[in-house]
Write a protein that binds this DNA or RNA. Structure first.
Lengths: 223, 223
DNA sequence: GATTGTTAGATTGGATCCAATCGACATTCA
DNA sequence: TGAATGTCGATTGGATCCAATCTAACAATC
């Protein structure tokens, strides 16, 4: 027997408008790499694949443009933005700033239950092999620590750039294999102790080592 | 005699597409307060005022939505996002994170000429009375200090949130009058000395006092 | 042989038209 | 009387159509 809430839940996962649907799906496709960087996004073609007209496609592309995921050139169309070392460094710098603030504001409000959940996510990461799922778990871990900040815009922006980082994560994992679980644990320990300085230092280490790994990957590839 | 670059410059300021034109103008109108928070943005009405069809309006609104300037509700339309103390605090937290990173990356690359220009802007602020121009000058001062960071995305995001802060600045100035010129000068001095810690501390003070002033304004208004 | 002009095809930008949805008010029924 | 239902106008979401612009290939000119 399906309860009413089940039906609502199932319906709730659907999208209220075609534009929402297209935007969410395209975003997913870009971030998972299904649409590689540089791919031209032909409106007519996409309209055919999504089985909608060109208009919702265009509105969705405008939103993705504002989020920095696609490049728009008048009368030439849209392409998936290229990823480069420069972009990756940019992303790391942005996350460094945002995540530090999120952690700073969240730490005083974190409960033991929050930290327990974060530790569970860490354990899940240890058991996981699939790369794309690891990205999601990593994101969940970080956001769990920041969720108590009570600043919705900051959190949304932080998550947006964590999601964007998934595009680089697969490169980074290809060389390194590990993804800073040591730092993850250090962050939790510092949060339990209420030690803001230590928590921020662990976060900084975490991002720095990830960044260095990525730089190494790009250098080895160009050589 | 007008040089070629003059012509290019003048032409470059025009808009290549109606959507660009509408988006830029609406954004300006929202940030300057010409369109107050909560204003419903009727597509047909705007289409008439801009003398275009509803479509460029809609695409522009989608972009502004992605930038957090308007709220979209399916089948109900768009309104200018409300400003509240919570939003202002959110904005301050975001800027705190982004500007600190921008300053950190820019400081080592700043030249004496950069700092001279920043000081000129400070002097201009002293001479200026008009509120909306002060917002622009304040923005210019900050971005001058950050411009050497060499991280285009970080800088774009920083500027975007500095621009958004203009909406709160007019409230803040209404009570305080001054806008942290002391901290501005402290930031320059620290940059000249190459003292990163002092520069970041000055920036932090700058944002904190502005935030406290705004909190005071909202509290006095609700009382 | 290199540059410039021309033309055809593809693709996007914008206008207009129709359908779906929402809010408010009137109506009905318990 | 008050809650639920039905209808209507306003407004938006989406489809289709036309015009403007870009790219590429080829012809013409110097």
């Amino acid at each position: 027997m399906t309860s009413l809430s089940d039906v609502i839940e199932a319906g709730g996962r659907r999208f209220r408008t075609a534009t929402e649907y297209v935007a969410a799906t395209l975003k997913q496709a870009i971030l998972t790499g299904a649409l590689p960087p540089g791919t031209p996004l032909r409106q007519e073609d996409l309209a055919g694949r999504f089985d909608v007209s060109r208009m919702p496609i265009r509105e969705a592309l405008r939103q993705l443009e504002a989020q920095g995921l696609v490049d728009f050139e008048p009368h030439r169309g849209a392409i998936v933005v290229e990823i480069s070392l420069a972009d990756a460094l940019d992303n790391f710098a942005i996350r460094g700033g945002l995540e530090a603030q999120a952690l700073r504001h969240s730490l005083p409000n974190l409960t033991a239950a929050d930290l327990d959940r974060a530790e569970e996510v860490i354990a899940e990461i240890d058991r996981e092999d699939d790369v794309s799922r690891m990205g999601e778990l990593n994101r969940r871990f970080h956001m769990t620590l920041y969720a108590a900040a009570g600043l919705p815009r900051l959190l949304a922006l932080t998550e947006q750039h964590l999601v964007a980082a998934d595009r680089y994560l697969r490169f980074h994992l290809a060389t390194d294999g590990d993804m800073g679980q040591v730092d993850h644990r250090a962050m939790i320990a510092a949060c339990r102790a209420g030690d803001q300085v230590a928590a921020l230092a662990a976060l900084d280490r975490h991002l720095s080592t990830a960044r260095d790994g990525l730089v190494g990957f790009f250098e080895s590839r160009s050589a």
